[in-house]
Design a protein around this nucleic acid. Sequence first.
DNA 1: CGATGCATGTAAGCTGTTACATGATTGC
DNA 2: GCAATCATGTAACAGCTTACATGCATCG
Lengths: 181, 181
Amino acid sequence: MSSQPRKLSELEGVALGIIYNEQNATAYFVRCKLRAAPSSHWRASAGSVYPLLARLEGEGLVSSTADDDDGRGRKYLEITKKGRAALRSWIKAGVDPDLVSATADPARSRTFFLAALSKKDRVSYVENMLHAMEKYLDETRVHLAGISQKDDLFGYLGALGALTSTEARLEWLKHVQKRLC
Amino acid sequence: MSSQPRKLSELEGVALGIIYNEQNATAYFVRCKLRAAPSSHWRASAGSVYPLLARLEGEGLVSSTADDDDGRGRKYLEITKKGRAALRSWIKAGVDPDLVSATADPARSRTFFLAALSKKDRVSYVENMLHAMEKYLDETRVHLAGISQKDDLFGYLGALGALTSTEARLEWLKHVQKRLC
DNA sequence: CGATGCATGTAAGCTGTTACATGATTGC
DNA sequence: GCAATCATGTAACAGCTTACATGCATCG
């Protein structure tokens, strides 16, 4: 009976996963990766990432080696055996009903209250939203095009998920637009 | 030059919208509505909703009338003119690029790190996820069927957005499943 | 040689959560 | 009459944010 490891938060899980995917990542690298990810809602601020990684290291999920010759004081992170086990648990815990249903969408939330806007404002709100989404969609497509299906299948599939999800939102919003007339 | 009202948080905006949609709602009603909404990731705990509504009332966005005859101490909430203006600003602020891109999906996040699982575990993880999503999809369909397109167009459109978004996620996950073989 | 980017970290605050506490009402 | 639900609220804490602080490296 090994004692169950603590449940990781979403950000912790993703950070650990990034360290798993990239050997010898630095904390800074993890931050950039988090921010660059398509449709990530995280700011991945220094104030969250550094304490988080220190915590993971304190719990033995990550080990770090400092390069003394490096003036910038870079520390290279590596996932430990215990860390890999924690990552696997975190992935499997995603099937929890709470997490399956949880896709908060600010555009959708606002739709419920469109009655509060004048007809004119409603129409231009939806138009603006469509433009913003289309722009974001383009970025997502560019991002996806840069990933090799052979070399990084899971990275590709994840990015593909972001794309299809955004496409679906766009189609839905176009339907909303039609209904406003 | 009217002084700009404070930016509302997502939960504040939705709560205010619920009070807008339903005249004479109680705080308890707002909580239930928040929890019942399809694909809402909010727990809408007492610890968040009551202080939040008190704050909105303190700022004059909501007014309340207590029924003295009511033993339960119910307080009926109503949106004020100032509140309606704040609601409109909140809706329009949704076009912000940050909010357009922000659709966090725990299922998608985990996909990036599926390499950490054994082949067998990968397959059963995706299968479990598919089952959980299909179950959730059924619930969403039932929910949508109970809304009248005539009487509550925006409620219908919002719920439809939740449905189509979930359907897209499901299709994507089926694609992931195919790619695992 | 100055701006930008790399790299680490801390302090304070916001927004939400869980867990608790209290009491009235309704349905069986 | 007792359980479940209605209804309000508080205290403590979790998790992430913004804003700040520091210093090295690289490029034009």
